[in-house]
Amino acid sequence: MKADNAEFERIVTEYAPVMYRAALAVTGSEAAAEDAVGDAVLRAWQRLGSLREPSAARAWLVKIAVNCARGQLRRGHETSLEGMGEEIPAPEPGRERELRDAVARLSAERRAVVTLYYYEGFSTAEIAAMLGIRRGTVKSRLARAREDLKTILEG
């Protein structure tokens, strides 16, 4: 993608929220997710030449954010894969968040695919590319996550 500074700034500003949500799903930590987005902006800038298809910018940026979020985990940022999902955020008065609370109970791996699939609307193929796993693995994680969510939401 041949983009100038303004164009890069535009797509990053546009997609920062979805990058954040994906990073949050991986790290389980708001602070780590913000840091991951900051890292991802720099990494995206350095690799801008690899974005040849402007319509793919959203998925491309989310993939970079997910990788940076994993980097945060590897560096031991506040949380760990094993430790996530046990603490459920306090309910916010006046906001529906039944599913969010249920998703927070899932393992980090399942939470990531659920967030990218149900909240962000990415296809299983796109999620597979973002997470560096097979599409079949995405599907099986989604299937297991659905079972977990059904148990949590419907008892």
């Binding site: 913000e34 902006v41 529906e96 039944e98 599913l99 969010r100």
Partner: peptide
């Protein structure tokens, strides 16, 4: 449910992104 329960980005994210953009080499 996912549509009804959006996950909002925190207020600090915009500032964090702005800082990252300013620091680009």
């Amino acid at each position: 449910m996912a549509k009804k329960e959006p996950v909002d980005a925190p207020d600090g994210l915009r500032a964090r992104v702005s800082r990252a953009l300013e620091d680009l080499p």
